[in-house]
Write a protein that binds this DNA or RNA. Structure first.
Lengths: 218, 218
DNA sequence: ACCTGAACACCGTTCAAGT
DNA sequence: ACCTGAACACCGTTCAAGT
């Protein structure tokens, strides 16, 4: 079969698929080339190197949010908007659990780009939306910082937990004797293993919104 | 000078120092061996491989909290205890900004170990303390989850920001024309670059404590 | 028991050469 | 203009050999 001419988007797209399947540890220029029926060295015509490729992967995935939920539905309130962004980001994190943690891998290009919203387009959109809903400049910036901190913590924990997903029954079985030194842990083991991540996320988001609302009032 | 016989702690300690200075990307068995005046292959007598070594580094750093603030000072309330743990963890993250992000690198060994408190000893201590202060089992587990999520998000953002620490003046200089497409970002640029991380952390922690307190009452 | 030296199967990346 | 092949300077890891 005749190969199409390769371009940068092909390479980035292939890298996303590769990491989703095999993890970043396995990503190799030679192996990625093979999935594209090309020698590793051909990739260097389109990306500057492995590091730059990984950065492009992260950027692409984050920017993809714009093609989905957010741009299409117009929010009725800033609370609405927060819910949209948060849930879109959550879906993204769960779709790409092996890519999402990379948002913190390299330091951001600029101090005002905070993970996981690491894209100029994104941050601009976010701040503009809050101002449209009547936030002062300071309130918008504060909300941006609070919101990113919440998203990062909640979603990283969620994808980390997804990596070891086992049932509470299994949890109570493994390492039967190894918890003897940790009595409290042993007692609460089953409760700890229960997965309520969706509820926790929603509750946390509600509290965050409540907190920002009360900051606005003061 | 005569070399002491190497042991595992020497290797882990050297790895911590190496990563602190050069970052994990630069950590190589050969280079680490060189800092210990030993061939790379000698390290394999003490650690199973590079991955296991990195895991040991993370574990060691987290466990070190016990030698510091926490074990010595007895807290007077659970609010006190939260403040202790949070600030100790914050100090640790800022002391080892290149190591802290690694707490999320590999999935935890067990579903009840959540970053950044990834140590059985730690989680046991945390849950036991909350129960001593009158938390029910469910309340303790909920508080553990909320607390870890907050710590992870807040501290990861803080060390990420530390990596690109530049003054607001510098921030307003760089990429002078490159923000033309992002008007809101451009306007709020200086505000975004301001570093209030200590205050944000304290405020976030206060809100977290408030939130847990109201959950206890209900 | 602990460390070394040589070796193996990989890497990322460069560069001249092909088409 | 785009891709290939050979090469370079590294990796992690193994294993037999030294002491």
């Amino acid at each position: 079969m005749a190969r199409q001419r390769l371009n940068r988007d092909d390479v980035v797209e292939a890298a996303i698929a590769f990491i989703d399947e095999h993890g970043i540890q396995s990503l190799t220029m030679r192996r990625l080339g093979a999935t594209l029926n090309v020698e590793a060295m051909a990739l260097y015509r389109h990306v500057a190197g492995r590091d730059e490729l990984v950065a492009a992967v992260v950027h692409q995935v984050i920017d993809d949010l714009f093609n989905d939920t957010l741009m299409t539905a117009e929010p009725n309130s800033w609370e609405d908007y927060f819910q949209h962004v948060a849930n879109a980001m959550r879906n993204l994190a769960l779709e790409h659990p092996k890519i999402f943690p990379l948002v913190t891998a390299h330091p951001p290009e600029a101090p005002w780009l905070r993970p996981p919203l690491r894209s100029l387009k994104w941050v601009d959109h976010f701040l503009a939306a809050l101002r449209d809903f009547g936030f002062s400049d300071s309130a918008a910036v504060d909300a941006y910082k609070t919101f990113t901190s919440f998203l990062l913590g909640a979603l990283l924990l969620q994808v980390a937990a997804a990596g070891v997903a086992i049932s509470p029954e299994e949890a109570s079985m493994i390492e039967e004797g190894s918890l003897e030194q940790y009595p409290t842990l042993k007692e609460l083991q089953v409760k700890l293993a229960e997965d309520h991540s969706q509820r926790e996320f929603d509750d946390g988001l509600d509290d965050l919104i409540e907190r920002i609302r009360s900051n606005l009032a003061s």
